[in-house]
Design a protein around this nucleic acid. Structure first.
Lengths: 365, 365
DNA sequence: TTGTAAGCGTTATCAT
DNA sequence: ATGATAACGCTTACAA
């Protein structure tokens, strides 16, 4: 019955109803040419299989002359491993941290896996995407987007190892690498408060960014516990323009320049800074401090030198894939949640130490 | 014989030698539960197959209750379509144009395909990557990296539609979307020359960037044909620091400030500009013009407002996938090469018009 | 070490 | 409209 298969494979049978292509080269073709069995061919492509030098050579020669490459679909059907890793990332995250995707890609390749990429225009699209993920029987997934509890549970049910990237799962049994955004935000507020800032303003990130919500929550939390006046909170959407717009709204609402503006990310901080300096003539940091989050490359440029919080994103990406790798090898293992700390990059857009009083007076004048 | 399969699928057979997972849910399980044949189940998941309402409902209900999702590997084995599109992109390109990857991803998803991503640390890695591409039987590929003629030919031999992104194939029969880098560079040089710049300097991109080479060639070409003095050429690697370093080298070699510095991309232009203004006290554009390529978001920020050339990358990405889509539908079609023009963004870092003489004198003073 | 044969989970081609 | 049944191209016992 398989014989029939072998016969059907002679070059004479050319006409096929398949739309485009001429027949594909299979391991049978190679076997025929090399004068060995099909399984011998298969073994030649399996590292560490028992094969004699002689046949290996014959097979490889035949394979090369036919341009033969094993078919991953057929292989994964029988081995039940696709060697695919899904990466699900929101568009936002990709645009602001292109480095992350590059790192994930490198690390996944290093593990001998391929990367199936899904980007989300809106986080709400994740349902459809997951359906694709299941179809392709990925061996694991790194997700930098919001999953519902039910969605996380489905990974468990389908035995697909999952590592969340920068999302804190409510559900306990989920692996994650994450940066404590709220704690970072608290740290920043504390440092600014110590340096004497009292009236804060927050230019918040978009509502569908989990990271933005955590940052805001951390700020509000610490401001409250320090007994400082309620901050002005305006919303932005992480882009340059909303930094400038946000600052204008803040000043409008407050009737004056706040002591410190904390922006949900560095892009907005840069926008805010540019508007303050170039359009409103505000001296930063003398009259007002500006701080952001992320420590982008641009944040360190001479024209900005933003005071910001750096997340070790590269390390996080590397570790996420390493974690996933272990999960894929020996499935199971207890849920691990690896936390990373942001650290403060003390740029020059915020006063972080108490000035001599008269300096402060002069600046205000 | 298939019967055996059906039997083997009763819940009683639980023990399997497969490492981790319990048995997967297959269409046989669904068929059994719904009380129909396996092929009926298959048809239910094929859009536009002939199925009665009644059975469709029964099957879907069973499928949902079992969490059944068709297996893409098995499907692609028989249909000879993986519904995968490979995207091969150099790390460089991804970091500087994250938008491109996002756009490609969206468009590929819109065509009902999934994106298999390969990023290249070095362009030399492409050989290994291609091997993976063949294994996974992708339906098509978008490549933003350098391919040898032989490599392009292999796409043809294997009947995998290919669209090059921003690489001009020497080979004729290859589809591509590209931006004429050399022409853009010539345009820029001409405009600067018209405005009176004579001594040019070039801060070149890295040697393994095809785009950088084309840009440089275009500049040199036009400078020569205009009979202008030979430019100082120093090499950079597309990052911020090499912009500043490049400027210092240029001034070192020239013994004075050049009339115009053209940088291989905007990041270097920004670095050059920052160093000129903040560290060397050079007035831009009064004493020296600075220009770049790409029109990044950052190039438009108030602190910079770089004079630069914009490539319609978003449109290019969209069109590349559209082209690929057509190729995948009705295979074949004549090789199309879609060219796009860069257009000049007249920022404020370069003089583009002839100043009144005495203004020029004042500036120099 | 090698060959034989039984799947892996689908879709496609037939009859019915 | 539905159900048998034969591929698809591979890996992996098992036997030789």
């Amino acid at each position: 019955m398989r014989k029939k298969n072998t016969v059907a494979r002679t070059p004479s049978t050319t006409s096929r109803a398949i739309p485009g292509a001429g027949r594909r080269v299979t391991s049978y073709d190679v076997a025929l040419l090399a004068g060995v069995s099909q399984s011998a061919v298969s073994r030649c492509f399996k590292p560490g299989a028992s094969i004699s030098q002689a046949t290996h050579a014959k097979v490889m020669q035949a394979a090369i002359s036919l341009d033969y490459i094993p078919n991953a679909a057929a292989r994964s059907l029988i081995t039940r491993r696709s060697n695919l890793v899904a990466v699900i990332i929101s568009n936002l995250a990709n645009l602001y941290y292109p480095q992350v995707l590059s790192d994930l890609s490198q690390q996944i390749a290093r593990q001998g896996k391929r990367l199936l990429l899904f980007t989300l225009e809106r986080e709400a699209d994740i349902g459809k995407v997951l359906c694709d993920v299941w179809q392709y029987q990925v061996d694991g997934a790194v997700v930098a987007a919001c999953l519902s509890d039910e969605q996380m549970a489905e990974f468990g049910r389908r035995d697909v190892p999952l590592v969340l990237f920068n999302r804190s799962p409510r559900e306990h049994a989920v692996h994650a690498v994450l940066c404590d955004q709220a704690e970072a935000a608290r740290l920043l507020v504390s440092r600014l408060a110590e340096a004497g800032h009292r009236q804060f303003a927050i230019i918040d990130g978009p509502g569908d960014s989990a990271v933005a919500q955590e940052r805001k929550a951390g700020m509000l939390d610490r401001l409250l516990s320090l007994g400082l006046p309620a901050p002005i909170v305006v919303s932005g959407n992480y882009d340059y323009a909303s930094g400038g717009r946000g600052l204008r709204k803040v000043i409008d609402r407050l009737g004056r320049v706040p002591d410190a503006v904390i922006c949900g990310n560095d892009i907005m901080a840069i926008g805010c800074l540019d508007t303050a300096r170039h359009q409103m003539g505000i001296q930063v940091p003398l009259q007002m401090s500006v701080a952001g989050f992320d420590a982008l490359d641009a944040s360190g440029w001479l024209s900005y030198d933003i005071t910001t919080l750096r997340q070790p994103v590269q390390k996080m990406a590397t570790d996420a894939v390493a974690m996933l790798g272990e999960l894929m090898e020996r499935r199971g293992g207890s849920a691990e949640r690896r936390r990373y700390c942001s650290y403060l990059v003390e740029g020059s857009t915020a006063r972080l130490t108490v000035e001599q009083p008269y300096f402060g007076m002069m600046a205000a004048a």
